[in-house]
Design a protein around this nucleic acid. Structure first.
Length: 265
DNA sequence: ATGCCAGGTAACACCTGA
């Protein structure tokens, strides 16, 4: 346990599906939910297109790893963001902006992850997903060796079990459900990581994503694909976790909603 | 079985997403 715990820090991960299109939603959520650290995915803009001034005015420091049109990740923090690293090692030809990490509150190492979707299966997209997960495994294995407090948050694009989706049968050929994807996700946990949500909520059918079409949100036809994974030191400091469904019900909502946890740092 | 909606880019159509 962290005997010197001093401050409760609320960390959230949220795939916003374009930070520009979502700016009013993001700003109102930052004000209402008041997270200390936010891990964003799918900002869908380059670094110089990020709405930096508006989010700084809300009280956050910002680090971005942007890309034109697709992907892109960011870290927001009420503390300075130190020692930022923007590449997931091992993919020399990989130009996708899907990973970034930095240190917040002087001691908590956080990563924002936009794991490849991988559909359709049987194509190079699925091969890329699996290779990316293997790279993530190796990087986490190295990172966890120092025993520090780490949180790996993001859109993992994996449905871990059939109880994490509204209709497993309808999704059985989806890349998010394949044994190869699930095995690799479990392998990350077997490194010693704790799924923050599941430390506090073991109910089935807890969702973080709902399709835009076919009335998925009002019918609660969702899936759980966004996670905060804690290193042992961070897991020891956890005090709460959950899913904030409010943003998904707003006008012009992202198809994902924030997953959050609180820990003593 | 299905990208049914949404965003970006570009250009009035196509790509990507999960």
């Amino acid at each position: 346990m962290n005997a010197a715990a001093q401050r409760k820090v609320k960390v959230a991960t949220w795939n916003v599906n374009s930070v520009k299109a979502r700016l009013p939603n993001v700003l109102s959520w930052l004000k209402e939910f008041a997270p200390d650290v936010v891990l964003l995915q799918e900002i869908k803009c380059m670094d110089d297109g990020f709405p930096r001034l508006e989010i700084e005015d809300a009280g956050y420091n910002i680090a971005t790893h942007g890309q034109k049109s697709y992907n892109g990740v960011a870290i927001l923090s009420k503390s300075p963001i130190e020692d930022v690293e923007r590449r997931l090692p091992g993919g020399d030809a990989d130009e996708h902006a899907r990973y970034m990490e930095g240190t917040v509150f002087g001691k908590l190492r956080v990563a924002t992850i936009y794991l490849p979707n991988g559909n359709p299966i049987g194509t190079e997209k699925f091969t890329y997903k699996l290779a990316w997960m293997d790279r993530l495994y190796k990087h986490m294995e190295r990172g966890l060796a120092d025993g520090e407090m780490r949180l790996y948050g993001g859109d993992y694009n994996v449905i871990p079990t059939d109880e994490d989706v509204y209709n497993a049968r309808a999704m059985r050929d989806d890349a998010l459900m394949q044994p190869e994807s699930r095995t690799r996700f479990r392998a990350l946990l077997h490194l010693g990581l704790t799924d923050c949500l599941r430390a506090f909520n073991t109910l089935p059918h807890q969702y973080s994503y709902w399709d835009y079409f076919a009335g998925s949100w009002p019918k609660n036809n969702g899936m759980l694909i966004d996670f905060l994974l804690a290193s042992p030191a961070a897991a020891d400091a956890l005090v709460n976790a959950g899913i904030d469904r409010e943003p998904r019900g707003k006008e012009k909502a992202s198809d994902h909603t924030p997953v959050w946890s609180e820990l003593m740092v």
